[in-house]
């Protein structure tokens, strides 16, 4: 799905988190929002997901105004930094949650839900853990379960907030590849937030560098590396 961000701004009280920013994300792209903490990247992601209300501006999904859509209506698969798994539910129940929460009229039958959950467990390459609880999983496994849970609702886009933030280097590398594969397989427009320039540059098709609530540069990873637009981008990419 094509995402168009039109002069979106956000204030929290007297502090400005986002100055009006505009960005066009082509359908099927894998985009990194890259910047230090406080750069407004997470705020922008949360506005896309409907978790934060914008102060001004518009968001368009496939050319249609989506600014006023409720979180529940956006069908955005969201992966939280803390994963936010339901710890009193098994992995199976976590992944099935979105499907079971649908109103009866468009809820898939039980067998269909089970089939889809098992297929997603295959996709994240953890077919054996359906009966386990989140507390019994490693950090990397939790992240993949959170991803499967977000994919279960057949989202129109995938939004990830620092998806690899809390993991060690080796697991991070594996999961980066995993996300890349899942993106290529599903063809979903994917936006992820990161403060790690290496991660952003390696994984994404398109990198958006942000600082102090403004977009500093938008471009392909190679272009940003070769031709940083501002002093900030040059320093941040080198760091």
């Amino acid at each position: 799905m094509h995402i168009q961000i039109d002069e979106i701004a956000k204030d929290f009280g007297t502090t400005t988190a986002l100055h009006p920013v505009s960005l066009s994300i082509p359908s099927g792209a894998l985009v990194a929002l890259l910047g230090p903490s406080g750069s407004g990247k997470t705020t922008l992601l949360r506005i896309l997901g409907g978790l934060e209300l914008r102060t001004s501006g518009r968001v368009m999904f496939n050319g249609q105004d989506a600014t006023g859509l409720l979180v529940q209506e956006r069908r955005a698969g969201f992966v939280f930094q803390s994963y936010a798994l339901f710890r009193h539910m098994t992995v199976f129940e976590n992944i099935a949650y979105g499907l079971r929460a649908r109103p009866r009229a468009n809820r898939p039958p039980k067998a269909e839900i089970e089939r889809r959950v098992l297929r997603l467990l295959d996709l994240i390459q953890l077919p054996q853990i359906a009966a386990r609880y989140p507390t019994q999983l490693s950090g990397g496994q939790r992240q993949r379960v959170a991803l499967a849970r977000a994919l279960a609702i057949e989202p129109r886009m995938l939004l990830l907030d620092e998806p690899f933030g809390a993991l060690d280097a080796k697991v991070r590398k594996e999961l980066c590849q995993g996300l890349r594969n899942i993106h290529d397989e599903t063809g979903l427009t994917t936006v992820f937030v990161t403060h790690d320039q290496e991660e952003g540059v390696e994984l994404a098709d398109l990198v958006v560098v942000m600082s102090m609530g403004r977009i500093e540069q938008i471009g392909k990873p190679a272009d940003i590396r070769a031709r940083p637009a501002t002093a900030f981008v040059r320093d941040f990419i080198r760091a």
Binding site: S82, A84, A101
Partner: peptide, 27 residues
């Protein structure tokens, strides 16, 4: 209970009432 748990429920399309019954109450 982290507020993200409720947000996660909402992004998955569940109503507030569903979250209250199936996420908050059991906890």
């Amino acid at each position: 209970i982290e507020p993200e748990v409720e947000e996660a429920s909402a992004t998955l399309g569940a109503s507030r009432w569903h979250a209250l019954r199936h996420v908050i109450a059991p906890m």
